[in-house]
Design a binder for these strands. Sequence first.
DNA 1: TATGAATGAGCCTTCATTCAT
DNA 2: CATGAATGAAGGCTCATTCAT
Lengths: 209, 209, 209, 209
Amino acid sequence: MPEKKAEGKTARSRERYEQRRQEVVDTAAKVFAERGFHATTVDDLVAATGLQRGGLYHYIDGKMELLIAIHERFIEPLLSEAREIAERDEPPETQLRSVAHALMGDIASYRDQVTVFLHEWRIIESDPAWKAIRKARKEFEQIITDILERGREEGTFAFTDSRLTLLAWLGMINYSYQWFDPEGRTQAPHVADYFTDIFLSGVRAAPPA
Amino acid sequence: MPEKKAEGKTARSRERYEQRRQEVVDTAAKVFAERGFHATTVDDLVAATGLQRGGLYHYIDGKMELLIAIHERFIEPLLSEAREIAERDEPPETQLRSVAHALMGDIASYRDQVTVFLHEWRIIESDPAWKAIRKARKEFEQIITDILERGREEGTFAFTDSRLTLLAWLGMINYSYQWFDPEGRTQAPHVADYFTDIFLSGVRAAPPA
Amino acid sequence: MPEKKAEGKTARSRERYEQRRQEVVDTAAKVFAERGFHATTVDDLVAATGLQRGGLYHYIDGKMELLIAIHERFIEPLLSEAREIAERDEPPETQLRSVAHALMGDIASYRDQVTVFLHEWRIIESDPAWKAIRKARKEFEQIITDILERGREEGTFAFTDSRLTLLAWLGMINYSYQWFDPEGRTQAPHVADYFTDIFLSGVRAAPPA
Amino acid sequence: MPEKKAEGKTARSRERYEQRRQEVVDTAAKVFAERGFHATTVDDLVAATGLQRGGLYHYIDGKMELLIAIHERFIEPLLSEAREIAERDEPPETQLRSVAHALMGDIASYRDQVTVFLHEWRIIESDPAWKAIRKARKEFEQIITDILERGREEGTFAFTDSRLTLLAWLGMINYSYQWFDPEGRTQAPHVADYFTDIFLSGVRAAPPA
DNA sequence: TATGAATGAGCCTTCATTCAT
DNA sequence: CATGAATGAAGGCTCATTCAT
């Protein structure tokens, strides 16, 4: 987590600085998600943060640096939660359901950031900080793949193509950033369960015994 | 499909004009998909089309009008195909698989346009032409919902929430615009089948008989 | 001589373009010399050229690129004249006087550019184009040094330190950019002769024979 | 030398204040000489002085006021030395050589300040404080002119144009700010002598007796 | 049809300076 | 004395669009 301009400050002022910066980053994520990165002007951010133009630049290095900060913000907590779940001694089904809850909750909580992440990552593709984000993304996907493949080995899952199976699961959940209602945040667990059920059992009615 | 500036011309020249315009729209879709709408300059389009600045404006009214044209390009053929499938006298499972093929093929064929659509639709939300696109989108979603609900009524499908079920199906397939490689070996029909299978039966292994 | 944006144009329009660009460069030199590079705003250039902001950028790549263009403008003609003089079969005194005329005339004609050259070169020191300018400067100084040293070998000049002697000559003439009245351009030859006389014979009165 | 904010303080604190201020002015001269006045930001000065932004403003009123202070710094000692030399009862040649030493030494000692003076004086041209600096400059030039003209009257110097002769002398020496290396082996006194010799006798070899 | 010069609003960013603490 | 957050005017530059030729 790179911290801008934080040298030569007292602990107290540094703390205030970091907090304010975090606010700025979150506000920016909201505005970017609403209007898109390029359609958002610095004046929009100025209006949204309540700062003035110069004051805003006290906390950031530029518009693009904000994109990086936004990504870090939502990908870190998700990844550490996924890691923790993967280490649990639970059946693959349970783990998959738990990660679905984690991802769904992340999208619900950081929908703005996720939107930015999915739409604008090309912009920062060349940025050195992007490598870390890309790595985090890969790690998350690998955790899911591992759960799926362990399930297959143990005989509880059946599928032929790991990657396509991962992408089906990922698409089902990730796509929710396009329609999820941020006010209905409490529904996230319900959706996670609903999608997990479909992913596990499908929609086809069980044949009569 | 509104045709710009095509009056008062000989049939021959009008034909050439329309063809050129279509090329411009498709080229724009490609460039927009790669860089994003706002990041694409008219000079980028000039370079990509091989036209000159002034020449480009003979075929379009402006950058934003291109967005509309791009949407029309991929949504019309998809919708008519979906309508045709819905009218067939086939079981819901078959219809669902067919529409998955149609949507998947559409994404594969018009991946640039779909990318632009999913990323930039907010930009034209207020445009009068957006209403038609929105209507088409709703109609497509309704067709899927109808198939699902008919399946439930007939007892082949089992689910509790039509909308969430639709969104699971839609997300699984639509999300492919993020990873689908049109040149790749994994063909669209195969993915459509694979995803349909998961959607119908899930990944859970069948219990031993 | 790098020519910006000159591809894909007809010979006619390219000619007009180059001419207009030259006017822009010369106007910029004038304004830079009056106010200094950094104190000159793009709006100043806009006002001085009669173009609008965007129109100005049709001819240039940026403020800094103008500095390079300005340097090229005045150093090229001077250098070729100096080369031509150096190749003549004339005594060193005559050559030195001729080069003094050339340099003095150059300063009188391009006083603005010379001012910019002497004051602002640090700004473009890191620019790749600067190497060429630096090389040209070195070559000019070498031509003077060669003339001086040939004179010493032939016995018409007497001095101990080539470099200091060069710098004395150079300073005497170059410094004129600080005081030369551009309206009195016709005086340049007179000053060149006057300074050459001092440099050759000094101001000390000849001892009575 | 106007002293800012030095009232109402104990002698001790006032002394410390003045010393600190002088350091700030000299540091500013160095940075201005390296990067130019306009290219130097207050943050550059903050970094160079080791103070903080607010702290810097305890010692100065603003960036431009620094320019004035820099000029005063090097012109005052030079002028008083020149005055003292002019009052001596010595032949013009000796006086001229002494003033050359003084000016050359001044440039060597205050090269940064001189650079700033020669490059940026236009910026403060309109400032009321500039009148005093201009007056000092004129007085210095007048002292040289007087020496030259007295030499001509006494028959030791021979020239036709006082002003051009002054400018030749001034240019030869002043221009050294462009190339003089204060750390270098070529010492200021040596250069002063060398240039004085050229100015007095020229570089032409004495005709064989 | 086609060209490319020109427009001018608007964008991102910088920076000298102030001021509450 | 000193800090550093905040200001807001201004700077360099971009870009969609127009229009005379």
